[in-house]
Amino acid sequence: MDFKQLLTQAQNDLKQVSCEAELESWRIKYLGRKSGLASFFKTLKDLSDELKKRQGQQANEVRQQLQEWYQKASQQFSNSSTVSILDYTRPGKKITQGHLHPLTLSLRKIIKSFEKLGFLVVEGPEIETEYYHFDALRIFPDHPARDMWNTFWLDSKNKTPSARKTKKDEEKLLLRAHTSPVQIRYMEQHIPPLRIISPGRCFRYEATDATHNFQFYQVEGLMVDEHITLAGFKSLITMALKSILGDNILLRFRPSYFPFVTPGIEVDVKIAGKWIELLGAGMVHPDLFKVVGYENNKWQGFAFGLGVERFAMLNFKVDDIRLFYSSDVRFLEQF
């Protein structure tokens, strides 16, 4: 067998190979089971010992050479093929996480801003007593101010009276319509200075539409210290709201009324040419300090309450409040 010629031919053929499939044909032709070289090895046993030794050695060298060429070429192909086949426009593999609810996201934003101002997150119960929810906050029975909080009352007919011990608890129970009872609960346990925010779920006995829901989230804020003033409140709340809604927002402060603050204040923000109510606030009424047993005339403070849905609607341009409670994954996935 003319090994020299075989190598030359193989080398020339290899030059013509332009893809992996052609290289495979080349391999079959020169290194496959039916190749000339393979047939030669089959006939090797018929040769004389000396020829066997000499030609066998030569054939081995040729085979090694061919294999070397093959490997080199196939490596080239595999290198170049990854480059040419990658289509970076193909969609990435779908890797997903779940999504936090928009109310969670807005609430976090609100809380973060107040935390930077030194406010501590505290929580209060959703099932409240008439005392903490109304009386202690100066929302007296048989007073028209009570109508500002349409309330769900709990059926406590089955209640064993013995379970309730203190006088404050001997009240009718309700689902809280605002987070303000937390003010009383917290002040009863803590001496100022204090700065708290209290997020939580509230309920109002009200018909539902695109901007009202019978269930909603509120964040209560309370700050009590020796030198808290009305101008101080304005400055602090402006900082916080700008940090939540952006530096360029336009705010408006106007009078309002809540029995547990005086004076009462409402804060609006201007969105698309319209003023939108953002939060109710005011200076803590001195009667509340009396109710919780604080030293007379020592403390001043402000309190506020804001609706989380309102912020989320502004944050994400959601136009129907009921979507937040829809559980529709097509909505939830967007956040």
């Binding site: 030198h227 808290i228 101008a231």
Partner: peptide
């Protein structure tokens, strides 16, 4: 209240 100055609290 809208005309009240913003004086940061002590």
């Amino acid at each position: 209240v809208n005309n009240i100055p913003l004086n940061a609290p002590l």
